[in-house]
Design a binder for these strands. Structure first.
Lengths: 169, 169
DNA sequence: GCAGGATAGTTGGATATAAAACAATCTGTT
DNA sequence: AACAGATTGTTTTATATCCAACTATCCTGC
């Protein structure tokens, strides 16, 4: 990804546009986007997601599985609908995901209580073990995030994120 | 025969709905997720995205189109690759999007300079007009975001988001 | 000029997600 | 008991996205 050869063909393009291939800073004019929370929120989320994606891939788990397993571990017996709400995803999204987690022996679905429509989700032993590995992985990710954010700003930043998630309906 | 009278009933309650008028009886345990930047970043981004989605839908434009149009408007003649980088998406994602924007007469692709591989993107008159409408829409969205964040925290919050986007690679 | 490598844009395959429609079941009112 | 409405999880359909492979073109070194 490092292209550091100094070419001198930037000249003609420098006037109007930049073909996109000048080494580092692209001199793109972001206009109002630069000031917009929405845009920067998306870019930050993307960056964080990709960084975590790389980490979790090393232990063979896709990033989306992560919050799911944590929530099941913390709320044994939770239903799919409650789970989907807790992690902010549509319930239909959860169906194939859980099929996969069950097939891999990480999650159990039991039909305990009186409601025959809903399943209760729990982690298996293997699920708990994997979750622990993932926990280490996530803590490392959080350390990276903290290093960028700085301990000074962290608390306030987190508070603002929570407010946004809660109040932007 | 009644066992465990005082035990936590997360099981049952987690399965309960909390659709609208539940007085907070749901009580999901988020465990470490509550403290994780990554998770809260995703939830905040989702909330912001959905709010904007609703707004922009009113004028018949999908939210993804927005940054794209702004960047083209600000950088007339920009190439697809440069655009994809500026906007943080893969270039292949842009292909169908631009096909649509061109078909709708909002964007023009011209083959100006000497490189026959690349197109130069510019807004049409209609594109500029639509962008202006979208601008109003986005400003309203930003007002909502600001109202939640508070003018106090805004600058610091934005700075942190930018740092994350820039340094988490 | 020409070969090898780099780059622009497209295509195809895969995944994640949402929204709407659906079947089974529960709940409340009568 | 019976019916109407709500809810649970699934299926279907559609979109957005990435990555890898591809084609066409460009550039550099010879």
């Amino acid at each position: 990804m490092g292209r550091h050869s100094v070419k001198r063909r930037v000249r003609q393009e420098a006037g109007n546009r930049d073909g996109g291939r000048n080494g580092g800073a692209d001199a793109i004019d972001y206009g109002p986007l630069a000031q917009w929370i929405g845009f920067n929120l998306r870019m930050a989320q993307d960056a964080s997601f990709h960084a975590f994606s790389r980490l979790s891939q090393e232990i063979g788990v896709k990033p989306g599985r992560f919050a799911t397993l944590t929530l099941i571990g913390r709320n044994p017996g939770i239903s799919q609908t409650a789970l989907s709400r807790a992690n902010g995803r549509d319930k239909s999204t959860l169906t194939p995901l859980l099929v996969d987690l069950v097939r891999r022996g990480l999650v159990r679905r039991t039909q305990t209580h009186n409601d025959r429509r809903s399943y209760g989700l729990t982690l298996t032993k293997a699920g708990e073990q994997l979750l622990e590995q993932l926990g280490a992985c996530a803590r490392e990710h959080e350390r990276k995030l903290d290093a960028v954010i700085g301990s000074r700003a962290r608390a306030q930043f987190l508070k603002t994120l929570r407010k946004l998630a809660a109040e932007m309906e």
